Simulated assay, not measured.
Amino acid sequence: MENDKRSETIEKLKKAGKEEFLKNGYQRASLRMICNSAGVTTGAFYFSFESKETLFKAILEPLVNQYEAMLGELMKGEIENPATGVDADKIMMQFLLAHREEVMIIMHGADGSCYENYHQRVEEFMRHSFAAYYRSQLGCEPDETLVRVLAKMRLEGAMAILNEDVDVEKKMYLTEKIGIHATGGTEKLIESLKKEVHR
């Protein structure tokens, strides 16, 4: 019974915390407001979480772990079968849409927290994946600057779709069409780079 009550308190605090972090970002988020919204005392808060950062991490870490595992699998699948690129983009967008609030917090409201530079971590992960993909297609190391720009474009494209003021169906449509466009562009780019390699 006591464990149920504690679990319920934790869930209330996570829900109220997510709302507060979304509204004010990590730095400006108020523990008092989180406790008021959750209907618990600050004592109950500190019984459940050591600090504001512990709460922040409890809200975001499971999704971060899930996102990184999924991103790794999708990128690996794309290297093995380039035709899966558009499907991978759609799966990724479905995940981002299902967790849009958390994405907004981590990308725009994480200053001062353990996830302050998380977008750089995602870019780096994408750079490694892009480099591996182009290496598999070219048989040599791709241009590092080109890979960095392509990874940044992909991440910014996903965020642009996420931020568009349109319904989910339209966001998925945009993801598919931009994925098709990117695939065609990628094929042309690889052709161009192969010509450079064989000069």
Rank of each mutant, 00 (worst) to 15 (best):
G25K: 02
P82T: 11
T175Q: 01
H181S: 14
E20H: 03
S113Q: 04
G185Q: 15
F95M: 13
K52Q: 05
C114S: 11
K170W: 08
Y67M: 12
K194M: 07
E2T: 05
Q120R: 06
Y118A: 04
K90H: 09
I161D: 02
Y118F: 12
S7E: 13
G39C: 13
D89A: 11
L162E: 07
D167E: 09
D87A: 13
V86S: 12
G184M: 07
A44D: 15
E144G: 01
M153C: 13
Y173Q: 04
D143R: 02
V86H: 11
I190H: 02
F125A: 12
F21I: 00
K5F: 14
K90W: 05
I190R: 03
R127S: 08
K195H: 09
L74S: 11
K23T: 13
M92F: 11
R154M: 14
R28P: 01
Y67L: 14
Q137E: 04
L22P: 00
I59Q: 04
K195G: 10
A110C: 07
I105C: 01
H128F: 12
N36E: 14
C140H: 07
E2P: 01
D87P: 03
G17L: 01
H198R: 11
F47T: 05
T42H: 10
E8M: 05
C140S: 11
S37Y: 06
S51P: 12
R135A: 15
K52V: 08
L155N: 11
N81L: 07
E53Y: 00
K52S: 08
S37G: 06
Q94V: 01
E53M: 04
E68S: 09
S113E: 03
K5Y: 13
G25S: 10
D143L: 04
S48N: 03
M92Q: 10
S30R: 00
G184I: 09
E50D: 13
E156S: 10
T42D: 15
L63V: 06
I180R: 06
I79C: 06
K14L: 15
S129F: 04
Y26I: 02
I105P: 01
E169N: 05
L60H: 00
H181N: 10
M93R: 00
K152P: 05
L150T: 03
A98R: 07
E116P: 00
D143K: 01
N3H: 08
L155F: 14
C35K: 06
L74P: 09
Y67T: 13
R199G: 15
R135P: 12
S7H: 06
G184P: 02
A160N: 04
H119G: 10
G179Y: 08
E50F: 06
D143G: 11
K188E: 14
D4T: 12
E20A: 07
E8T: 10
E20M: 07
Y173R: 00
E191D: 14
S113A: 04
Y67C: 09
K76I: 04
A132C: 09
E102Q: 04
G157E: 06
R32A: 15
P142Y: 12
M93A: 03
A16I: 10
K152L: 15
H181K: 03
Q120S: 12
H181E: 12
M172F: 11
G139T: 14
Q94C: 02
